[in-house]
């Protein structure tokens, strides 16, 4: 049959077009490259907040203008070295920490309600974003965010440094009926979060799952057996609104940023 046809591309291309398996295999190889090159290095290069075994974060070194290295213990909270040993006595500025039980419950609500559809949590290193939202976000700040929440659309403002900006009461009012405090808002009313109770068992399960993650799990030294055991009590008779507000109030104040330090490379 068509074996006698003239070939208008190359012999090899013609062979591929005749051979299903060959085309299948070659395609499978061709599409693999890009992904491997872009994803795999993020697991072993510095500045990717990959804790790794040795705790050096693959030799990440944030330097100030004089070239002095900021110790990673000042960026990622480490109960062993820090003066504050437990989640309870962690203070803003102690460094990036995983979420408390209540915040974890709030983060679940954040994802469930699709807040990320309108709010980013990733401040880019631009002067206007600095003036509007604060210091640019760094890799370490989302290292415990299993299912990252950077978002891709700002129908509403960025939330990466929201913590402490408003009072709980303001959030309570705003989240329930945004237009009552911000007339121009197009944000939905989330009043119903005030009528739903946090599911304590789910929180306990979630904390446990976070310690089991293959990449950047929460250290057992932070989510200790006691802490997980006490989680249910911590969220007892809290509403989903309380939880969400706790999550929002904890955003962006973990690291104390020094002037003139390059936290990206």
């Amino acid at each position: 049959m068509s074996d006698h046809d003239k070939i208008y591309s190359t012999k090899f291309q013609d062979k591929i077009e005749r051979n299903t398996l060959l085309m299948f295999v070659l395609t499978a190889i061709a599409v693999a490259f890009g992904g491997i090159v872009e994803i795999v290095p993020l697991f072993y290069l510095p500045n990717t907040a990959m804790a790794g075994g040795d705790g050096t974060y693959n030799n990440t070194q944030h330097k100030d203008k004089q070239g002095n290295v900021i110790p990673m213990s000042k960026i990622v909270w480490n109960p062993e070295t820090s003066t504050h040993k437990t989640l309870a006595d962690w203070q803003p500025g102690d460094g990036v920490r995983p979420y408390t039980a209540l915040e974890t419950a709030g983060r679940y609500v954040f994802i469930r309600e699709g807040c990320y559809a309108c709010h980013s949590q990733m401040i880019r290193p631009f002067r206007d974003e600095k003036d509007r939202y604060g210091h640019y976000s760094i890799a370490e700040e989302s290292m415990y965010d299993h299912t990252y929440q950077w978002g891709s659309k700002r129908t509403g403002p960025d939330l990466a440094r929201l913590g402490g900006k408003y009072s709980d009461e303001w959030h309570r009012k705003h989240l329930k009926y945004p237009r009552d405090v911000v007339p121009e808002s197009v944000m939905p009313n989330f009043f119903f979060l005030d009528n739903a109770m946090v599911d304590g068992d789910k929180v306990v399960k979630t904390l446990t799952v976070m310690t089991k993650m293959p990449f950047n799990p929460v250290p057992k030294s932070i989510y200790t057996a006691e802490y997980i055991a006490g989680a249910k009590a911590e969220v007892a008779n809290k509403t989903e609104l309380d939880a969400l507000i706790a999550y929002l109030q904890g955003l962006g104040n973990h690291v104390k940023f020094e002037e003139g330090v390059n936290y990206r490379d």
């Binding site: 900006k165 009072s167 104040n253």
Partner: peptide, 13 residues
């Protein structure tokens, strides 16, 4: 009634 003016020094923003 609630009346809380946040502490903007603490918020650090």
């Amino acid at each position: 009634r609630i009346a809380v003016m946040p502490n903007f020094t603490a918020a650090g923003k």
